[in-house]
Lab assay of single mutants.
Amino acid sequence: MGFKLLSKLLVYLTASIMAIASPLAFSVDSSGEYPTVSEIPVGEVRLYQIADGVWSHIATQSFDGAVYPSNGLIVRDGDELLLIDTAWGAKNTAALLAEIEKQIGLPVTRAVSTHFHDDRVGGVDVLRAAGVATYASPSTRRLAEVEGNEIPTHSLEGLSSSGDAVRFGPVELFYPGAAHSTDNLIVYVPSASVLYGGCAIYELSRTSAGNVADADLAEWPTSIERIQQHYPEAQFVIPGHGLPGGLDLLKHTTNVVKAHTNRSVVE
């Protein structure tokens, strides 16, 4: 069995187990497998329904001669939608809004960016022009300005110390501490036991640490421990890039980060 097929099978099995364990909360999309990078042309966006009122959005972007996937989250909030992270750029984010209108038909009224990198804030200006209120932590807003990236308009308070959590509509926002970046936030959907790890969490097929220019490698494993301790009931975990899975993604990420750190020390 090929690795790609095995990865998709694991996603399907995880979703099936969740649907059985929580039949009222989960209505997993039966329309197909989780979209992969090879299936999404740059400039297009796919939506994948995880649970009743919960979707991931998947886009792709060219970077350094390669094409990478990027995940975000959409959560229903009454007759409105909360968006977590842009679709990595203005063109993708405009396509995301169009796809949401086509498939869901509810307005996106608020959006949260989970850290300051372009795959999370690139497209904020498109959201703002569409009347979406954009939010991020003060740290993310400051770092985005320093980096020359787009800056969300509103500040999220109460997320300055490791372990801080605040309720934001249908989700809980959690600051686990520094990891992929010093400002990275985690998003949890309690009604569906869905954990969105953003770039602080890796997919299972990833074996290298990737972009760690703004990471705190020493603190990252401790931050992941905080996530595990705060959300032990999480059933569906979405990484910032690639295929979702279960809580095993947290341990896998820790292993990859520690291996990278150990290699760096040896070198």
Rank of each mutant, 00 (worst) to 15 (best):
Met1His: 03
Met1Trp: 04
Gly2Asp: 15
Phe3Cys: 04
Leu6His: 10
Leu6Val: 09
Lys8Phe: 05
Leu9His: 06
Val11Arg: 05
Tyr12Arg: 13
Ile17Asp: 05
Ile17Glu: 05
Met18Arg: 05
Ser22Tyr: 06
Ser22His: 13
Pro23Asp: 14
Ala25Trp: 13
Phe26His: 15
Ser27Leu: 13
Val28Lys: 12
Asp29Gln: 14
Gly32Gln: 05
Glu33Lys: 14
Tyr34Cys: 11
Tyr34Ala: 13
Pro35Asn: 14
Pro35Arg: 12
Thr36Ile: 08
Val37Thr: 12
Ile40Tyr: 05
Gly43Phe: 11
Arg46Ser: 10
Tyr48Ile: 10
Tyr48Gly: 10
Tyr48Val: 09
Ile50Leu: 09
Ala51Tyr: 15
Asp52Ile: 05
Val54Glu: 03
Trp55Ser: 01
Trp55Cys: 01
Ile58Pro: 02
Ala59Gly: 11
Ala59Leu: 04
Thr60Ser: 10
Gln61Arg: 09
Gln61Phe: 10
Phe63Thr: 11
Gly65His: 05
Ala66Lys: 11
Val67Gly: 10
Tyr68Cys: 05
Pro69Phe: 15
Asn71Gln: 07
Ile74Lys: 01
Arg76Glu: 11
Gly78His: 06
Gly78Asn: 08
Asp79Thr: 14
Glu80Phe: 06
Leu81Asn: 01
Ile84Val: 14
Asp85Trp: 00
Asp85Glu: 09
Thr86Asp: 00
Ala87Ile: 00
Ala87Arg: 00
Gly89Phe: 02
Gly89Cys: 01
Ala90Gln: 08
Ala90Cys: 05
Ala90Ser: 14
Asn92His: 05
Leu96Arg: 01
Glu99Tyr: 05
Ile100Tyr: 03
Ile104Met: 09
Ile104Tyr: 02
Ile104Asn: 02
Pro107Ile: 09
Pro107Val: 12
Val108Phe: 02
Val112Thr: 03
Phe116Glu: 03
His117Lys: 02
Asp118Ala: 08
Asp119Val: 02
Asp119Pro: 00
Val121His: 00
Gly123Trp: 03
Gly123Gln: 03
Leu127Lys: 01
Arg128Asp: 06
Ala130Glu: 09
Ala136Tyr: 03
Ala136Glu: 03
Ala136Asp: 02
Ser139Ala: 13
Thr140Ser: 11
Arg141Glu: 04
Arg141His: 05
Arg142Gly: 12
Leu143Ser: 12
Val146Gly: 10
Glu147Arg: 12
Glu150Lys: 05
Thr153Ile: 15
Thr153Pro: 09
His154Val: 14
Glu157Leu: 07
Gly158Thr: 11
Gly158Lys: 11
Ser160Val: 14
Asp164Tyr: 07
Val166Tyr: 13
Val166Phe: 10
Phe168Lys: 03
Pro170Ile: 15
Val171Asn: 01
Glu172Asn: 08
Pro176Arg: 01
Ala179Cys: 02
His180Gln: 02
His180Val: 00
His180Pro: 01
Ser181Val: 05
Asp183Leu: 01
Asp183Pro: 00
Leu185Met: 09
Val187Phe: 02
Tyr188Thr: 01
Pro190Asp: 06
Ala192Gln: 07
Ala192Tyr: 06
Leu195Ala: 01
Tyr196Leu: 06
Tyr196Asn: 02
Ala200Tyr: 04
Ile201Thr: 10
Tyr202Thr: 05
Tyr202Pro: 03
Arg206Ser: 13
Ser208Trp: 07
Ala213Cys: 14
Asp214Phe: 10
Ala215Met: 05
Ala215Ile: 05
Arg226Lys: 06
Arg226Ser: 13
Arg226Gln: 05
Ile227Lys: 03
Gln228Leu: 15
Gln229Val: 10
Gln229Ser: 13
Gln229Gly: 09
Pro232Val: 06
Glu233Ala: 12
Glu233Thr: 13
Glu233Val: 13
Ala234Gly: 08
Ala234Asp: 00
Gln235Cys: 05
Val237Leu: 05
Ile238Tyr: 06
Pro239Val: 06
Pro239Gly: 04
Gly242Asp: 03
Leu243Cys: 06
Gly245Tyr: 03
Gly245Ala: 05
Gly246Gln: 08
Gly246Tyr: 08
Leu247His: 08
Leu247Val: 08
Lys251Ser: 06
His252Arg: 04
Thr253Asn: 01
Asn255Met: 06
Val257Glu: 02
Ala259Ile: 06
His260Asn: 07
Thr261Leu: 15
Thr261Met: 10
Asn262Ser: 09
Val266His: 11
Val266Ser: 14
